[in-house]
Amino acid sequence: MTGARISEFFGLNRWVWSLGGVLILWAILSVATSSFSLQSLSGVAVSASFLVIVALGQMLVITTGRGNIDLSIAGVITLSAFVSILVNAQAGLPVALVSVAAIGIAAGAVNAVLVVGLGIPAIIATLATGYMLATASLVANRSFAGSGVSPVLAAVAAGRIGGMPVIAIVALVVVALVSLLLGRTAYGRALSATGQNARAARLAGIRVGRVVAATFVASSVLAAFNGALLGAYVGGAFLEMGTPYILQSLGAVVLGGSLIFGGASTALGTVFGSLLLVMVVTTMQIVGLPPGTQDIVQGAVVIAVLALAGRSSIRRGRVTPRPPQPPPSGAAERLRATH
């Protein structure tokens, strides 16, 4: 009885696994190294805060299912870091914040139109918009003159209130909001329903297209503000500054226990997933592994987690969701067309 209840608890609260991972890794690091002090812990908290803001947006997109994913966040982060600094130097902080929001909304809207409106697979659509944004950053990089980081943004990104990094508080607020959105609002329910079965959701009267489109906009807006804060934190912008966030956000989401095929997500899990991933990366930096190892380990972690998830779903006798099949009447022509 209690065994069944415990396994039910684990099944419902998949974030427990990532929390366990965080605690175990923390324990090992504290025992094994004296250099892993409270100081580096606060560094971990800051890095994880930047990651979790992006990862929550990614999580919302992934929740919609059908293999939806946002690969354009790297481009959004880099471009908004450049733009926030450029515009802040010329026109002040309010205009800079407006332009950052504009980048996020515009990029998200383009993704939404491509994926929802034109039916292009998200992976290709967001990859394409990501490259366009990266090229825009390249152009911005050319007209980049010195540093014009806003002191207000810098205070939010790097400041502390009573020893607690401000960015961590910002991240916690975002987590709480997304958590409420998912669990307590009609939109959150509609989102889960869409991810579990888009057709059933549509028949139940949910405007599936709008639900999916909103997640792409949310993801881009979160990435845009994260980019502006990241630029303020490092005191400048550079090309490729957003690139690591593609795989890391994905890693944080899957490590946290959200399902990669959508329909079931946990904001709390994404927090612990981000912490775990950042701790792994920090450990590698402390140990001093050569460049490239970080990419290998992160790629391997994501694959390993999903491989384990895939195995358990095989065991439960569930079939992996497939992309929607074209109606059977097209089969004959498709065979003919291939000749």
Binding site: G67, L247, F261, V302, I303, L306, A307, G310, R311, T320
Partner: peptide, 11 residues
């Protein structure tokens, strides 16, 4: 291992 193609190849 039943990993989705876009995730496996991204990894």
């Amino acid at each position: 291992l039943n990993v989705a193609p876009f995730i496996a190849t991204l990894g």
